[in-house]
Design a protein around this nucleic acid. Structure first.
Length: 246
DNA sequence: AAGCACAGCAACCGCACGCAA
DNA sequence: GTTGCGTGCGGTTGCTGTGCT
């Protein structure tokens, strides 16, 4: 199986794995562009990188996901969306590809039906309560981030319900609770019914991910079993200052 | 036993980003 | 400011294994 350029494609052989391992052992990770030349691999560098990251890396955890991992994955997906690399970064030994595959095969259907139920529930609630729709996601061109003037559709204008609580002026305990609640399973239900909470003044998940992502890229991990790590994850004053700066 | 359908996973592809020149 | 290069990420594809008829 070779492409028109003579680069091999498809499944990796043990021999190729060995060459790649040897290369990384000798030269370390990165410098993928040198791999075909130095390692004597007839593979494109992207393919080499992927193979290493998803399969050959020594700390890769293989096998099924534990209940804890699945639980955390669902919560992180709620928070971060399809940022598989970020989610994987919080699941020690798991790769973005693993997480993505697992999500697509095991959890997506569940989530879809769950969302469907939630929507139906929400509609039922709407019959009783009037809930103002509000944007929950922001495009990549979100001008507020670049310091440019924003359009009303994109900006975090205070709601006209007269409540102007922002996380920046919330007590630290409230902030911690807020972020912890973001990871709470009940979040959607609560949001659907509690439209005057401070939650409403928060940036959307997508925006949060955009700003968290660079900080989380360092590959830092936290102990899944340690609740305090969630507080650490959520409580970052410098981030709040950034989010609330003009 | 053979054929088929489906699920799971590895790998590919295209795009976006960061950085240096 | 622009361009080119290297890298990382997410979406998608296609192969393989497994279960069912």
């Amino acid at each position: 199986m070779e492409s028109s350029l003579g680069v091999r494609k498809g499944a990796w052989t043990e021999e190729e794995d060995l060459l790649l391992r040897q290369y990384v052992h000798k030269y370390g990770e990165g410098k993928w562009y040198q791999i075909p030349l130095r390692a004597g691999l007839n593979r494109c560098r992207k393919s080499c990188r992927l193979r290493w990251l998803n399969y050959l890396k020594p700390n890769i955890k293989r096998g099924g996901f534990t209940a804890d991992e699945v639980d955390l994955m669902i919560k992180l997906h709620k928070l971060l969306g399809n940022r598989w690399a970020l989610i994987a970064g919080r699941l020690p030994g798991r790769t973005a590809n693993d997480v993505k595959n697992y999500w697509n095969t095991h959890l997506q259907k569940k989530e879809i039906s769950r969302n469907k139920d939630a929507k139906e529930k929400a509609q039922d609630i709407v019959k009783v309560k009037v809930i103002k729709p509000r944007p929950r996601t922001f495009t990549k061109n979100f001008t507020w981030l670049s310091g440019k003037p924003t359009t009303t559709a994109e900006s975090f204008e205070p709601e006209d319900n007269g409540i102007s609580i922002s996380p920046a002026i919330m007590g630290s305990e409230s902030r911690i609770k807020w972020w912890e609640s973001l990871l709470d399973d009940k979040e959607d239900d609560e949001r659907a019914t509690c439209n005057t909470s401070a939650l409403d003044k928060e940036p959307s998940r997508d925006l949060w991910a955009e700003k968290i992502a660079p900080e989380a890229k360092g590959g830092d991990t936290f102990d899944v079993g340690d609740p305090s790590c969630l507080a650490d994850f959520s409580f970052d004053m410098s981030l709040w200052e950034f989010l609330n700066a003009d």
